[in-house]
């Protein structure tokens, strides 16, 4: 039996109102990826993670826990969980992410930052001041909470003198670029995905030889909401890979199932399974995703049968100096 929708949404929205994120994450954990990268604080152009990659380990833990609750008598107590979550942070006790998951998502953000540095892009980072952009609240239609949060974030950008944002995931890109200007008066900050920034950059050239056929999984949000379709292909080809296309691709890409994972984990898993089959049929050596939700959902559905990684990791192998950011043995073992 599915979990009760209202209380599950309620818990996430209470967290966003009270703790500024749908799954509370400590500032220390959110910025840990940036260690030793020497990214300047703030500036007119900032790399904006929106904490999406950092939140994924919590989402994976939550989905695993909630998936078990779907057919259990415990499902009926979610409402009680919401009641207590208002007083103390129940979600941080219930959903404990694996250390290896933190590591693998941190590695991807590091790869993105290293690619931008390698391309000579001038950018800063807001560190602990950075907030989640609120995409889930918008998707779930909780507009009052979303607008209040968006206003808080817009005020932060103003106070920090931010004029341009480089985003790293499709959901954050979409809300900041296409939704914020419709709900916040005078929101005129330029928003570009790092994939667009890198594709426009002529100085980024491969320094390591890579080869092989990589199947591309387009994110629905990048392809159908934001028209980011050619840039990831251009970058993979420039890196030296051959791009393989699955049956559903570009603006007709097939969803990974991730958007409903927090409410209907079993259904999301079935959709992920269908997409994994299409990706297998394309017969690439690996699969490149460009959204942390897609990556987590597809890895879970593939259950180790297919090498699925973020496009940033494939690109970093070609464009960045090797060694420092390679996958750890612990991470390799833990990947589903």
């Amino acid at each position: 039996m599915p979990l009760p929708t209202g209380p599950v949404i309620g818990i996430m929205m209470d967290n966003l109102k009270k703790r500024k994120s749908v799954f509370p994450i400590s500032g220390r954990k959110a910025v840990k990826w940036s260690q030793k990268l020497e990214i300047p604080v703030g500036g007119e152009t900032v790399l904006y993670t929106g904490s999406m990659y950092q939140l994924l380990p919590y989402m994976i833990a939550a989905v695993n826990r909630m998936g078990k609750m779907e057919d259990s008598f415990l499902g009926q107590y979610v409402g009680l969980g919401r009641f207590f979550n208002k007083m103390f942070n129940v979600s941080s006790i219930m959903f404990r992410p694996k250390r290896a998951d933190h590591k693998r998502f941190r590695r991807i953000i590091r790869d993105i930052a290293r690619l931008l540095q390698q391309a000579g892009v001038d950018f800063g980072y807001l560190y602990k001041k950075e907030l989640y952009a609120g995409a889930l609240a918008f998707d779930l239609g909780v507009d009052e909470t979303f607008v209040a949060h968006a206003q808080r974030l817009s005020n932060l950008f103003k106070a920090q003198g931010v004029r341009s944002l480089i985003t790293i995931d499709p959901h954050t890109t979409n809300v900041l670029r296409s939704v914020y200007p419709t709900i916040i008066d005078g929101f005129d900050i330029e928003v570009k995905s790092y994939l667009e920034v890198l594709a426009e950059n002529d100085t980024l050239r491969p320094i390591n030889k890579v080869e092989g056929e990589i199947t591309i999984h387009d994110s629905c949000v990048y392809a159908r909401y934001e028209d980011v379709v050619e840039q990831p292909r251009q970058l993979l080809r420039r890196a030296g890979y051959t791009v393989k296309e699955p049956k559903n691709n570009r603006n007709l890409t097939h969803c990974c199932g991730g958007p409903i994972e927090s409410l209907f984990p079993s259904m999301a898993h079935q959709i992920g399974g269908k997409r994994v089959q299409q990706l297998k049929d394309a017969q690439g050596k690996g699969v490149a995703t460009m959204c942390p939700i897609c990556m987590a959902t597809l890895q879970q559905a593939a259950n180790g049968d297919l090498e699925i990684d973020d496009i940033a990791s494939f690109l970093a192998k070609a464009f960045c100096p090797p060694g420092a950011n390679d996958k750890s043995a612990e991470e390799k073992r833990s990947q589903p």
Binding site: P2, T5, L140, C220, R224, L263, F264
Partner: peptide, 17 residues
């Protein structure tokens, strides 16, 4: 039909077609 309304992925495959 509330559950179905929340089962939609908002993936816009329908809109693209």
């Amino acid at each position: 039909h509330t559950p179905v309304i929340y089962q939609c992925l908002l993936c816009k495959m329908c809109e693209a077609n």
